[in-house]
Design a protein around this nucleic acid. Sequence first.
RNA 1: GCCGUUGUAGCUCAGUCGGUAGAGCGCAUCCUUGGUAAGGAUGAGGUCACCGGUUCAAUUCCGGUCAAUGGCUCCA
Length: 587
Amino acid sequence: MINLEAIRHSLSHVLAEAVQKLYPDAKLGFGPAIDNGFYYDFDIKDKIGTEELEKIQSAMKKIIKNKVKRFNHETMPIDEAIKLYSDKGEIYKVELIEELKAKGETEVSIYRQESWSDICKGPHIEKMGDIPKNCWKLDRVAGAYWRGDEKNKMLTRIYGLAFESLEALEEYIKMREEAQARDHRKLGKELELFMFSDLVGKGLPMLLPKGATMRRVLERFVIDEEIRRGYEHVITPVLGKVDLYKASGHWDHYQDSMYNPIDIEGEQFVLRPMTCPHHFEMYKGKPHSYNDLPRRFAEVSPLFRFEKSGELSGLIRLRNFTLADAHIVCTIEQLKDEFKAVLELLKYIMDTLGISDKVWFRASLRDDTKDKYVDNPKMWEFSEKLLIDILDDLGWKYEVALGEAAFYGPKLDIQIKNVNGKDDTIITNQIDLVLAERFDMEFTDRDGQKKRPVIIHRSSIGCLERTIAFLIEHYAGAFPFWIAPVQVKLLSISEKLNDYAEEVYNKMFDAGIRVEKDVRDEKLGKKIREGRLMRIPYLAILGYDEKESGKITLRNRDTGEQASYSVDEAIDKMILMDRKKSNTLII
RNA sequence: GCCGUUGUAGCUCAGUCGGUAGAGCGCAUCCUUGGUAAGGAUGAGGUCACCGGUUCAAUUCCGGUCAAUGGCUCCA
């Protein structure tokens, strides 16, 4: 049986040996197996580019050629190991061994391939000959901070792909290429959904008419649904005084993600990175009784967050984005039911968008060892337990992520994988027992006493831009009828049918269907091709027969089948489909 | 921000081992009035991302900047 992990791990050692052969000064960092191969980090003076990568790959092949060369497992007293690696100048390895020693270890495990060796737990294959032929290749070079900490030196990381066979490797590479075909950035351009401009600025997306239509559809959907569920929709400014964020604590905890203040007549304003303080001020605009609670302030809220240039990515990471945001102010007794209701709304939205199968839940809790969190252990204990209880009550599966909480409370995140296989948060909700205190929010309880409410921060459909990105990738641009920016396109087979196209167009347009017409002097085949490339749910063919019978022939995007309907019947069915938000085309 | 890669027409891309550029699609005009994934012809369109340097000559070589992208950090 092939132990893939051992192969990957062994290849990382081969990589390290090859690099140190070519660059004797290179110092070793970490070199683990990962889920598509392996990497090794080096502290290396020379620039490693594509050419160097090829040389390293050749050097690796030379090492592997010696099929009988073995990976021998040895152990060594820990002080001897420290001396050995100190003598070699392997400062990073020494750091690791010192740490093992501090933990009470007395010896270390070493794998040796003849003259080259590395401290390592294993497992490894026995000998070079156990590496399947051509099952691996070096992939790319990247920078990576020592121990993943920005404050440390950046090392050179070399990634390699490795699988159990050449076929598996080729399959993986092919899969990766195919995934790129549904990349929202590529489809966004092809389907004319959004664009960026250097003059406007990076991370600042512009939704083109079709993208804006999609966003409007999602926005209306979510606003209507929220209002139905007792939310009050509000509109607040995208700027706020610095003092507002000092009051909320964001100025202390979140300043790295905020833009520099703007001076207006001597007062300092910032572009808002979140909406909560605005909503809190709104809550405080009048006194509240327990009878008024919960109050659920919702807003489709443009936000501005500073992201380092290298962190931007299509519509997924932006500097200006729009969050379907809300803040629920309620009593602590109401908290559990309110949070459950939020989760039920989320489930409904995921189901409606058709992405329930793709998402998973993450309980993001505090990590005691980090100091970014509000210091109130009792509060944390209560809110984290509450979150877990709610999830367990609902019977939802979730994973726990320590250190992913907000500074003021635990989060329930909804996670999704993008086309490159990376996890992203699509929606996040927080339980907050802190900010009501900071903003001095209160309500009068039935006993006449002033009390503190608690707050739920939640999103419903996430950031519209990011959600749109995932929808593009999930559907590969072939959106459900109710989301599709263009729902039907009318294709006249000749200019002589253009008057009929105009007539049908007006009927559909008046019925609220998102309809386009193609009345150019082009062949039908060409119009169909272009309509299909745009993934339009229905192409309606208008020829002499159709005109005569007052019908249209609809071609179904998903099945490729086509059938004729009277215009009124087609409109009725389309209105129904739109209203039901169905993911299948019913005619 | 850092490490690597990339930047040629609106789009997708070719090309120039240094002598200022091409294709297809798109666009405009004309012909064609055509029934299921590209009908034909003609034409317009490029400071080869930007700024410097080397050179008789730079889109090509070198340096810097900007932007995109794969990682790292961060994150909705």
